[in-house]
Design a protein around this nucleic acid. Structure first.
Lengths: 260, 260
DNA sequence: AGAAGGACCAGTGGTCCGTA
DNA sequence: AGAAGGACCAGTGGTCCGTA
């Protein structure tokens, strides 16, 4: 059975990079398996490095094939041409509402964050068992693990894109729910809703002395996510605007005004 | 006045990399200075990126020249050829003892760790002021900052090399002092002393349930340093050896035996 | 030989932009 | 047009190995 993957024009260097996606966690396996030390450690490392640099041919075997969940109808399985389908786009849904048609709802979006948390916990357990350093955040390693575990619908750009929306959901579920209902009613698209999530978050951070990092870390399910750059910057500019309303600079005002 | 820096054969790609060492923190300056947002943010970033990619000519001005501390006699200043001297090698000294001749003592070594801590605090303060993400550890950024601040004798490989020695000094100063005296007495070199620092640390970690990360984090001056890979691995192997002496594997035994 | 550190490298955080 | 995500890129953690 053939595997055909569409590639973009930008993907000149892909062949080698794509290969790595399917590789087993080499280093982990090597360091977990024990071995010789000190005098021999130099040789071993050289071997590993040499091995790493070699270009490898992938064998797409059972273990590496992605399992699709649920009722996902994908193009042409068994026909000889497999093409990965994109996820359905999100729409603004009320809490509890299931999206109809080729759409996904916001409860599903937030569910993805919970799934990532579970994958992180698994990665942490493996690391602890092996005595390796243990991630406290959802890192590239976790996304790689998720993909290998079959959750191909989870990816870094998507999760990072909506982190602050999930943050609002965690920190003030009522406000989050109200915002969803309001934006659904008004027929706004996901992008508009996403933008609107910043403002109440900045307000919450203001209540807590403008420390976004502390705000994230105080919540166990949120603490595993990096604070998004834009949210951090918004809080910074708003703080400078709010404290001492006499020394307001026009530049800072404009900066913030652009966002709301 | 000319500036001549010796280069190794490996430094084919240096010209461009060395340039970066002397650059101001561009991104920081840009993001700290305010600007336009959202709609305009794309253009700005493109500009920055384009600028970043350009090869730059350095102007070695007053600010960028490195100040040398103390009685450092360097080759040929004023003569037209400046060559950076290596630091004097460390020797095993007792607590309070000053190294004679072209040597540095261990109190000086530990002092470097305190200096790095101060540089980190400065970097943290700048980051907080600018609303940027704030490092909790001594990162590359901190080493760069230290170098720019004139502390050219601080560098990453050196500091990482002796972290566990500093850890012992922090966690059990008496044991650390005793070890120094013993190794000085026996006329051992620095490498031997450094190796010997592992064992008491592993013992301390054993007392604390084998959690090296927690052990480092519990000490405020130690918490800012990454746990060295080798110490982490040693603790891992020792734990597996110590718990359940019946299921001892020969491989693991050998691994650890190689180190002591 | 023992030791200091410039330089390198694989994999990271962050997000753009070609794609559907 | 609005949105999903492959791919890219600058700067990281980690340490080797050419140097003195």
């Amino acid at each position: 059975r053939e595997v055909v993957v569409k590639m973009s024009v930008r993907s000149k260097g892909l062949s080698e990079e794509a290969v790595q996606l399917f590789q087993q966690e080499r280093e982990a396996a090597v360091s977990g398996g024990g071995g010789t030390w000190d005098a021999a450690v130099g040789d071993v490392k050289k071997k590993i490095r040499r091995r790493t640099r070699q270009k490898k041919v992938i064998e797409v075997d059972e273990e590496d094939e992605l399992e699709r969940g649920d009722d996902y109808e994908n193009g042409d399985i068994g026909g000889g041409c497999y093409e990965r389908q994109r996820e359905h786009p999100f729409i603004v849904t009320e809490p509890g509402e299931v999206a109809r048609g080729k759409k996904n709802g916001l409860d599903y979006l937030f569910h993805l964050y919970e799934q990532c948390r579970e994958f992180l916990i698994q990665v942490q357990n493996i690391a602890k068992e092996r005595g390796e350093k243990c991630p406290t955040k959802v890192t590239n390693q976790v996304f790689r693990y998720a993909k290998k575990a079959g959750a191909s619908y989870i990816n870094k750009p998507k999760m990072r894109h909506y982190v602050h929306c999930y943050a609002l959901h965690c920190l003030d579920e009522d406000a989050s729910n109200a915002l969803r209902r309001a934006f659904k009613e008004r027929g706004e698209n996901v992008g508009a809703w996403r933008q609107a999530c910043y403002k109440p978050l900045v307000a919450i951070s203001a209540h807590r002395g403008w420390d976004v990092d502390a705000m994230f870390n105080a919540h166990p399910r949120l603490a595993i996510w990096y604070v998004p750059t834009k949210l951090r910057q918004l809080c910074h500019f708003e703080r400078n605007n709010s404290t001492g309303s006499s020394s307001v600079s026009g530049v800072a005002n404009n900066s913030v005004a652009c966002l709301y």
